[in-house]
Each structure stands twice: as C-alpha cells, then as structure tokens.
Amino acid sequence: MLYVKVKTEDGEELVLEVEGMTEDEIREELAKAGFKIEEIEVYEVEP
C-alpha cells in the first residue's frame, strides 16, 4: 500500500492512500480539490 502524508499551508495534516500515482499527479489532484500544499511525504506500507 502506498500512502502520502500531506501538510497544508493552514497546518492541516492528511494521510491519503494512493495507488499508481506519481507525486506530481498527487499534487495536481489535491490542487484541484482546493488544497494548498506545503509538504508531501510518500511512504509504502507492507501488508
């Protein structure tokens, strides 16, 4: 499983499960949803 931890400019932290997306695609999708991203951390969790 691939997850991203996202910190927004307003200090909110989100953890999202993503599969088959690049970091650029993740940033693009979050921007479309109205999030202003300060930091993204991508990590993989073994089942």
Rank of each mutant, 00 (worst) to 15 (best):
M1Q: 07
M1D: 02
M1Y: 13
M1P: 07
M1C: 11
M1I: 12
M1K: 15
L2H: 10
L2K: 14
L2S: 09
Y3P: 00
Y3Q: 04
Y3K: 10
Y3W: 14
Y3C: 09
Y3D: 00
Y3F: 10
V4A: 05
V4P: 00
K5C: 07
K5D: 00
K5I: 10
K5G: 02
V6P: 00
V6N: 00
V6D: 00
V6R: 00
K7P: 03
K7R: 12
T8C: 15
T8G: 07
T8K: 05
T8N: 06
T8Y: 08
T8R: 06
E9S: 13
E9F: 11
E9N: 09
E9A: 14
E9K: 14
D10H: 09
D10Y: 09
D10W: 11
D10C: 12
D10M: 07
G11A: 02
G11W: 02
G11R: 01
E12S: 11
E12H: 11
E13I: 14
L14K: 04
L14W: 14
L14R: 05
L14V: 08
V15I: 13
V15Y: 13
L16I: 10
L16E: 00
L16A: 02
L16R: 02
L16Y: 12
E17S: 10
V18T: 03
V18I: 10
V18D: 00
V18H: 01
V18L: 06
V18C: 13
V18G: 01
E19W: 15
E19K: 13
G20E: 03
G20P: 04
M21T: 07
M21R: 11
M21C: 12
T22Y: 03
T22C: 06
T22W: 03
T22D: 05
T22P: 02
T22M: 04
T22G: 04
T22A: 03
E23H: 07
E23T: 08
E23Q: 06
E23F: 14
D24N: 10
D24Y: 11
D24W: 14
E25M: 06
E25R: 06
E25V: 04
E25T: 05
E25Q: 10
E25P: 00
I26R: 00
I26E: 00
R27Y: 09
R27A: 03
R27W: 08
E28F: 12
E28V: 10
E28T: 10
E28G: 07
E29P: 01
E29A: 15
E29R: 11
E29N: 09
L30C: 05
L30G: 01
L30V: 03
A31K: 10
A31E: 09
K32C: 11
K32L: 08
K32G: 04
K32Q: 08
A33T: 05
A33Y: 15
A33H: 11
G34C: 08
G34T: 02
G34I: 02
G34Q: 02
F35I: 07
F35A: 01
F35N: 01
F35C: 06
F35P: 00
F35Q: 01
K36S: 07
K36E: 04
K36V: 06
K36W: 04
K36N: 08
K36G: 04
I37Y: 09
I37M: 10
I37C: 07
E38C: 13
E38L: 15
E38S: 13
E38M: 15
E39Q: 13
E39P: 02
I40D: 01
I40V: 06
I40H: 01
I40S: 02
E41R: 11
E41G: 06
V42W: 12
V42K: 04
V42G: 03
V42C: 06
V42R: 05
V42M: 08
V42F: 14
V42L: 07
Y43D: 02
Y43K: 04
E44Q: 12
E44L: 12
E44P: 08
E44T: 13
E44D: 11
E44K: 11
V45D: 06
E46L: 13
E46F: 14
E46I: 11
P47N: 08
P47H: 07
P47I: 08
